[in-house]
Simulated assay, not measured.
Amino acid sequence: MQVVSVTEFRARAAEMVDRVQKGETVRILRHGKPVAELVPPQPEVAEPGRVPAWKRPFEPLHIRRADGKSGAQLIIEERASGW
C-alpha cells in the first residue's frame, strides 16, 4: 500500500491512479490522518438467477379500440388519406 499526503497526491495523481489500476491501494493523508483510499474496483458479481430489467422478456401491449382497429391500423389509414 502506498501512503501519500494530499499535496503529494495532487502533484502525482496520474501516477497514483496508474498504481491503483495495477492493483495497488493508495492511502491519502491530511495532516497525518487518513482521509481517503483509492482501491481497485471489485468485479461485480451478479446474483445467480437475477436478470436485469432490460433483459427480461415482456409481453407487448395489444390495445384495440371499440371498432376493433389497432393503433398501427389507424396510422396506416391516416397516411393513406394524405393527411
Rank of each mutant, 00 (worst) to 15 (best):
V51I: 15
A46I: 02
E44L: 02
E44T: 03
E47K: 11
T7A: 14
R27L: 09
Q73C: 07
I63M: 12
P60Y: 04
P60V: 01
V17R: 13
L74A: 04
R56W: 03
K55A: 09
P60M: 07
E24N: 08
V17H: 10
A46K: 06
F9S: 02
V51R: 14
E59M: 12
R56Q: 14
K69D: 02
V3F: 03
H31R: 12
R10D: 13
T25G: 01
A14M: 11
A72Y: 01
G68T: 10
R64F: 14
I75C: 00
A46W: 06
R65K: 13
P41T: 05
R19F: 04
M16P: 09
Q73V: 08
A66I: 09
K69I: 03
I63W: 13
E78N: 00
I28W: 04
E44I: 09
A72P: 00
P48Y: 07
P57K: 12
G82C: 09
R10W: 05
G71Q: 04
V26H: 02
W54D: 09
P34K: 11
G49N: 05
A11R: 15
V6C: 06
L29W: 07
G71S: 03
M1L: 07
A14I: 08
R79M: 06
V6A: 14
E24S: 05
S81A: 12
W54Y: 10
T7Q: 14
A46Q: 10
H62Q: 14
P43W: 05
W54R: 04
F9L: 14
W83Y: 06
I63Y: 12
K69N: 05
K55R: 09
F9R: 01
G71H: 04
R50D: 00
A80R: 15
V51C: 02
E44H: 08
V35H: 08
I75D: 02
R12C: 10
K55E: 15
A36V: 06
A80H: 07
V39D: 00
E59C: 02
K69R: 15
V35P: 11
Q73Y: 04
P41C: 00
V45Y: 00
L29H: 08
Q2N: 12
V20F: 02
K22W: 01
G68K: 11
E37F: 02
I75L: 13
L29D: 03
V4L: 15
E44Q: 03
R12K: 15
R12H: 13
R10V: 11
D18W: 06
K33Q: 09
V39A: 09
V51N: 00
L74Y: 02
H31F: 11
K33H: 06
M1Y: 01
R56N: 07
Q73F: 01
F9A: 13
